[in-house]
């Protein structure tokens, strides 16, 4: 089957699923009226709404091909970087290094992905930005909280630009017998992690007893992580026809990305706690920011990229 037919079926499936999920949300809203259940239903509805957004955006981007996907993720990176840097330590002396982050490093990273210069996009931020950006802050001569300022800026770039850009970078992997179909791998990655993430939340609420880190998040439990990982593996295998992997490989890969995604969310929850906020941003009204919705996917992307690159490509 060609990639367009596969993509079309996937899209139809997603729309059917989201229609069902939306109807379920409306039904739940009518059935439950208690305060506790209400917040649960609202959280669920918010998530479904954001899924609609994701499916529409991904579908439009996919229609434009590789360039469309890269531009989409560049904008998502921009929004996420903006949310992240709003909360990090900074002073007037960092103005230029932050401007460079937004308007030079971010576009350059995505441009390098577009021209498929692997050797440079994998070190642009870990090497060049890491060493050169603090210079732009240091020459302004402001020692207060210096290490904290440059470290937090670097962290923001690593997560929201470097890690996130590995999602569209999947398009450039030359997997034998999978030419032209890499776009489906992006869909698989996003769907498996998002699906596992919401099921993890449900399992944690239903029979979660032992929080992974009670001080960070009460809705993440060891029981939820275990059942969520299993759920991710099931979703991954069901959608296995999108990937170049065999069944057991698909299951392992799905398990890996969901687990990393769960712990990635935990790391991001720790940062939010540290900064004293509940959500990263307010771009999606009432639903937090882009970072809240995509933290798990972003965390898993570079590892997924490198595992696929190592085992499935000739390079």
């Amino acid at each position: 089957m060609n990639v367009y037919a596969d993509f079309f079926y996937l899209l139809l499936g997603m729309i059917a699923f989201l229609v069902a999920a939306t109807l379920l949300g409306e039904g739940l809203r009518k059935v439950f009226s208690g305060e506790g259940a209400k917040s649960f239903v609202e959280a669920y509805a918010a998530r479904v709404t954001s899924w609609w957004g994701m499916v529409v955006l991904l579908a439009i981007a996919f229609a434009f091909g590789q360039g469309g996907v890269i531009v989409l993720f560049a904008f998502i990176s921009f929004a996420a970087l903006r949310e992240f840097l709003t909360l990090t330590a900074k002073t007037r002396a960092d103005h230029w290094s932050l401007l460079i982050s937004f308007f030079v490093i971010l576009p350059l990273q995505y441009f390098l992905i577009y021209i498929d210069w692997y050797g440079l996009y994998s070190i642009l931020i870990p090497v060049y930005a890491y060493l050169l950006l603090p210079i732009a802050s240091a020459v302004r001569g402001e020692p207060e909280r210096f290490l904290r300022r440059v470290a937090e800026t670097q962290w923001a770039l690593m997560i929201t630009v470097f890690a996130a850009s590995h999602i569209p970078a999947l398009l450039s992997l030359d997997i034998e017998g999978f030419e032209g179909r890499q776009i489906l791998l992006i869909a698989w990655l996003v769907i498996v992690i998002q699906g596992a993430d919401v099921l993890q939340y449900v399992w944690s609420r239903m029979f979660g007893r032992h929080p992974v880190a009670a001080n960070l998040s009460r809705s993440k439990t060891w029981e939820g992580y275990a059942a969520g990982t299993a759920s991710g593996m099931v979703i991954g295998v069901l959608l296995g026809w999108l990937t170049p992997f065999s069944i057991w490989q698909t299951a392992l890969m799905a398990g890996m990305i969901t687990l990393i995604g769960f712990f990635g969310s935990l790391v991001m929850a720790a940062i939010k706690r540290d900064k004293g906020v509940r959500d990263w941003g307010h771009l999606i009204a009432g639903h937090g920011g882009f970072t809240d919705r995509l933290d798990a996917v972003v965390f898993a992307a570079p590892l997924f990229f490198h595992v696929v690159r190592f085992f499935w490509t000739a390079s």
Binding site: R92, G281, H282
Partner: peptide, 20 residues
Amino acid sequence: ANLNEILPKGEVVPLPLLCT
């Protein structure tokens, strides 16, 4: 909130940060 960091005194190019 936050505008001081978006456009500190003496700077011309604003930083794209969130503000309320």
